[in-house]
Nucleic acid binder design. Structure first.
Lengths: 222, 222
DNA sequence: ACACTGTTGTCAACGCTGTTGTCAACGCTG
DNA sequence: CAGCGTTGACAACAGCGTTGACAACAGTGT
């Protein structure tokens, strides 16, 4: 049953991205294969290549798609919004993106899509930092520090949380298995703090990081 | 030419890790396949499985091996070393590890090996933070904040730097290609700062992050 | 000295992966 | 109605991680 071209076409870049996003988040990064995606779309695996150059192009498209939802959450930031609360809202939106699309986030947090959504987010953050009156050099450094730190932190968390199940088990239980069992003699500090260490959540760390970054920017104002 | 067991054995976990580490850093993560590694060792690809459960176990072994060099650089930290310079030395050692073994670092920065080298590093950092007299809860939070932030930042950088060449090109040039070309009309802030943004280095960001973290810890002492 | 046992490497094979080239079916335009 | 460009199907390729059966050897107990 060969399908054909024109408006009544079966596939489009948009529907491919839709299904791929849903598939990846539902079944993990390993399930995002061309054959699996083809089956999901009811189409031969290689039909994909009529719409994207290669798999990496799809991955970047997934990234830019998820950034759109970040953008939506930043709409209410105005020039009147204080820079502190603006930065907090941006951080918050990034965190939510990571929670909603952990697989795609893990796949792409170290990438640059160059897509429209990404460009808008960059512009918004720069507009927030610009009026602080630091020099150009300091402004861009603080932009990168803010952006990279939060992307990296959230991305690392997503990577850890979306590991293939059999691998994830080893990692997740590493702290409770090996670190909680270290002897007081050779590892006094670890032995003492292991119970508390297990309890620290990624979100606490992320929020502490936001505090830390804002504190640092304040210190640069003087 | 079938080889055999005993002392005159061809392979060992150590030699496998040696060659794998060298291969990965020389030719990239994609080259670290069992068949390629077997060829490198002059041995059938599946001989590997007599020494490791699976590939992931090798990757974790690679990670712990590179952490050993971090440990070496921390030997001269004593209880007399001020916490600020101790933390700076730790950060420095992590950065050097990331520079020397970017492929392995990118592969494992979000993982926990639970190996001996990793345990020692954890103990050293906790011993640095412990005497500050913050409560247990604050101590472990700051430990995780410090560790995770620097791991994530360095790891994200390594991930970006060790992408397959054809993919890397798109990413590296994204800033100069798309962001430098954005019109002043819709993207005034980006348009203005794009030239400076291209110039910011990962190391600058990393060092700024260390400053930021130390500043934050200081603020928590009061 | 000899058979036994456990270890280690070889080999063939399985079911995957991303991707390419060829071909057929279809909508649109001349 | 012919031709053309687009789109999907299909077969195929080279590579991947991993498994199971088999052979060669070292060391051990008798």
């Amino acid at each position: 049953m060969t399908r054909a071209a024109g408006p009544g076409v079966a596939l489009s870049a948009t529907t491919i991205v839709d299904r791929a996003l849903e598939l990846a988040e539902r079944e993990g990064a390993a399930a995002l294969s061309m054959r699996r995606l083809g089956r999901e779309l009811g189409v031969d695996a290689t039909a994909f290549y009529r719409h994207f150059r290669d798999k990496d192009e799809l991955v970047l498209a997934l990234a830019d798609r998820t950034i759109e939802s970040v953008l939506d959450r930043l709409r209410d930031i105005t020039p009147d919004t204080g820079w502190r609360s603006a930065l907090r809202r941006i951080a918050d939106a990034m965190w939510q993106q990571a929670q909603e699309h952990p697989v795609v986030f893990a796949l792409t947090f170290a990438r640059s899509t160059g897509g429209p959504a990404e460009r808008q987010v960059v512009e918004i953050i720069l507009r927030t930092l610009q009026p602080l009156g630091l020099g150009a050099a300091k402004t861009v450094l603080l932009y990168r520090l803010f952006m990279d730190t939060l992307l990296a932190l959230a991305g690392m968390g997503c990577t850890a949380r979306t590991l293939p199940p059999e691998i994830a088990e080893k990692d997740v239980t590493a702290w409770s298995r090996v670190y909680a069992a270290l002897p007081h003699k050779d590892f006094p500090a670890t032995h003492k703090h292991a119970p508390a260490l297990i309890g620290v959540t990624d979100h606490e760390i992320f929020m502490a990081s936001v505090d830390s970054l804002i504190t640092y920017i304040e210190s640069q104002l003087a």
